[in-house]
Amino acid sequence: MKSSGTKPSTSKIRKFFKRLFARKIVIFGAVLVVVFVLAALLAPYISPHDPYKQNLKLSFAKPSAQHVLGNDELGRDIFSRIIYGARTSLAIGFVAVMIAAGCGILLGLVAGYLGGMVNSVISRVMDALMSIPAIMLSLGLGIIFGAGMTSLMIILGLATVPTYTRLMSAQVLAIRNSDFINAERVLGASNIRIMFSHILPNCLSPIIVLFTMNIGGTILAEASLSFLGLGVKAPMASWGAMVNEGYSRLITNPVFALAPGICIMLLVLGFNILGDGLRDVLDPRLRGSI
């Protein structure tokens, strides 16, 4: 134990990662996520072809040395579209969950801290949102916000708000009357200060876990909506839409519908495993509840 010493924060981080990656499967999950994130970030540099360039001569062409996964109906390179699809999935997943976490945390803090009537109203509104099945709620919101990437982020974000609100208000209720909060109050701290500098940091662990898990869930939801033709607009590459374009040729040209589906699975699997791993390290009590 001589490696600690001058920089306690780095050793803390190192310890955290050591515990996180103690199980081999978590490394696997993290690698999956990192690979897809890198693919999404570097898409313009690593994709072999322009994902939007059409070449009708290559319509439904089988995989070849030039086009490793073949071409779609309009002759676009499927491998390049898969890489750009990672961009769409991750961008929507990440931003939507940011929106959900932002709104949900705020509402949950307010509901849990103020309690009483405010808590009842917020809780019932969240129950109402939760009683509408996710895809149905997204479809309903879709009528208001229309199609497209920004709308999808907002729609999927709003549909996920209740999970954060519930988590947050439950956490706040659990520590609201603890001694250190009461001490703050006696010292004259304002409600806002107590909420944001004392209660919020104490609830971070479950939020990080939920955040990771929800990105996977949101990516699945985006894929379903895009599959139904209610997601991102053409010609933007989306894995869900690609499955829809490709499945009629599944027997003759299986790669087209298989590849995007496998990518969805691997990416969501990555986030789920990572979320599981984070939960075990950050907050083992949550095992089974998230």
Binding site: S224, V243, Y247, L250, I251, A257, L258, N272, I273
Partner: peptide, 23 residues
């Protein structure tokens, strides 16, 4: 069970349909 949790159900459905119904 882990696989089932991450499998997009529309994808599973089109795979099943193509294989068992179409093919």
């Amino acid at each position: 069970a882990n696989l089932g949790a991450v499998m997009p159900l529309f994808w599973l459905a089109v795979l099943g349909m193509s294989l068992f119904a179409m093919h």
